[in-house]
Design a protein around this nucleic acid. Structure first.
Lengths: 343, 343
DNA sequence: TTGAAAGCGCTAACAA
DNA sequence: TTGTTAGCGCTTTCAA
């Protein structure tokens, strides 16, 4: 059944129909200048021979690869996977292959930017949620292909994202409106212990909203920990060990908040009775834990980034670069006014 | 700075050094028959020109693409993303590009198997956690390239996985050893409402262990629900509405168990006092929820699948096809003997 | 050790 | 509307 003979070439199809490969090529790609009758015969023959064009050969001739690359860190984090899924969806629908570059850890990342393995392999690049340095952005310039970002700022390259400061401010104002005065923040760092652009912008929003509400910022109520559930737990532990702990905490991501919640549970701190907690992203974990959070449309950011890249590759320009999607407050069970004696 | 001129070709390098492209090709690939001095000059020139070979052209000439495809459903589920990360890691290290085919939903899946878009584009295919029908496995035969599976059974194609029945039996025996007599099971279905092979095998293990322990199986204590947290919640609700609910439940995946836990919490059923619950996979959610579970090495399955594919592509044979990794019981806080009146 | 030349499978410009 | 013919950038005999 399964033919192990080499796959048919365009020449085979041409021979079968009795025409030249030029005509077959035109017919298969739906170009004008082929009679309908001939096109049908060719299509039939191609199908019969189980023929598909060789992307490599086609790419050689046209100068386009038909592939795009997606660069994504930490694919097993919900956020990154969702954005990737969105980008993949539109890219595939636009006829592109999606080549995955997963960089986890600093070594892989450095290698990517040093060797730029996407050169000559793809027609464009989508970068998801990776905070790049000036130098790294610089490197992308020499790529000679369009680059777009999702949930990251790429300097002069177009990108989709949200208004992070606004989202963070929304969270803080919600807590302030509930009467909280001492509002802390938990920030996350990457494996190198540094804060990405998103973390920076959410801090900015936090600070702006605190000022706007006339609330004092206690420096020791802003704590950082490695990204993840354990990091969040550790950060909350730190807050709980302060002389005067905050009565409400804004965690820069739901996963961080999940860890914070674990520490609160272990310490038997009543949530939200004694401590309010709000996250960011509205990931499934927020729903599971009944966590109040700031929602953003992650899949859609992937979609838009993919769409922008397709535009850039096919038309050379992007109608709307720099889109910012809105954020929404999702009220759940972890925020309220203080109802029991504060810590 | 960023040269917008077309990238250098091998001919450019050859010209710069004053040799033929044949020599450049040999030098760059480390083939014998090039003097060390010449090789160094060529390497230097290539670097100076910022040259990289065109994979398309190279592929045309050699008949190999240098890429492999990974087919994966539901990339935003932790399990799938982890396995993908493992496969990606070894494949990239072996010098392959990883082309991603994400199939979510039945339409995308059918399209994949009808058009087989990987034909002529890649040298091999890794399939992650997708239960294939006989027909679909059949289709893979005509691909003319090696195919390996991770966490799925691919018939005559090699694959890595765990011993699912053994893992499930381990869970059930644990519950039985705690004195539970009425042990239920929650199974998950895909979007079409059908059970995949993994679900089937875990049911087999459950049934076998129940028999082994001399426990009666109540048919209405085996419930199915759509995959996910909500499905798990719904399934547990169903169990809680039985005439005589089980005192312990085995959920075929942690995500299902998470939902089940939510229903138990809402119904104020004491866990594990009145009801024990055990999951499967040992995903981060299990740790977060302090869920007893059966652990498997997901990333490693991806690694092994990738490694097998590399072997198959490069050597044509696989030393150890059909590897089965072991599973481990991870004791946490959701299982115990019944300590309060059963429901 | 190196060069010359054919060819991988396709596209595109030009002719017919 | 269709055919012819150069390439696209590389690899790989075969000669030198």
């Amino acid at each position: 059944m399964s033919n192990e003979q080499p796959p048919a070439t365009m020449a085979d199809v041409a021979r079968a129909v009795g025409v030249s490969t030029g005509t077959v090529s035109r017919a298969l790609r739906g170009l004008p200048g082929v009679s309908e009758a001939m096109r049908r015969r060719i299509l039939r023959a191609a199908e019969g021979l189980d023929y598909v064009v060789s992307p490599g050969a086609s790419g050689l001739a046209t100068g386009r690869t038909g592939s795009v690359a997606v660069l994504v860190p930490h694919i097993s984090r919900w956020f990154h996977a969702r954005a990737l899924a969105g980008a993949h969806h539109v890219l595939r629908n636009a006829g592109f292959e999606v080549v995955l570059y997963h960089v986890e850890g600093i070594a892989e990342r450095r290698e990517f930017f040093e060797t730029l393995p996407v050169r000559r392999r793809v027609d464009g690049l989508v970068i998801i949620a990776l905070s790049l340095s000036e130098k790294e952005i610089e490197r992308l310039g020499g790529l000679g292909m369009p680059v777009v970002g999702a949930s990251t700022d790429l300097g002069r390259h177009p990108s989709v994202g949200i208004d992070d400061p606004a989202g963070a401010a929304m969270a803080v104002r919600h807590l302030a409106n509930l009467g909280h005065q001492r509002i802390g923040m938990i920030r996350a760092t990457d494996e190198e212990g540094i804060h990405g652009g998103v973390s920076q912008r959410r801090l900015d929003g936090y600070l702006a909203a605190m000022a706007e509400c006339g609330l004092p910022v206690q420096q020791d109520s802003i704590v950082s920990a490695p990204w993840g559930i354990d990091g969040g737990a550790q950060a909350m532990a730190q807050l709980l060990s302060l002389r005067t702990p905050p009565t409400a905490v804004f965690a820069e991501a739901d996963d961080i908040a999940a860890g914070a919640l674990r520490s609160l549970r272990r310490a038997a701190v009543d949530v939200p009775g004694q401590m309010s907690l709000i996250g960011f992203d509205d990931s499934p974990i927020a729903d599971l834990l009944d966590l109040t959070t700031v929602a953003q449309s992650v899949y859609e950011q992937g979609l838009i980034a993919g769409r922008m890249l397709v535009e850039a590759v096919e038309q050379g320009t992007i109608a709307e670069p720099g889109q910012r999607l809105d954020t929404r407050l999702v009220l759940r069970g972890t925020t309220s006014a203080v109802r029991r004696p504060a810590l």
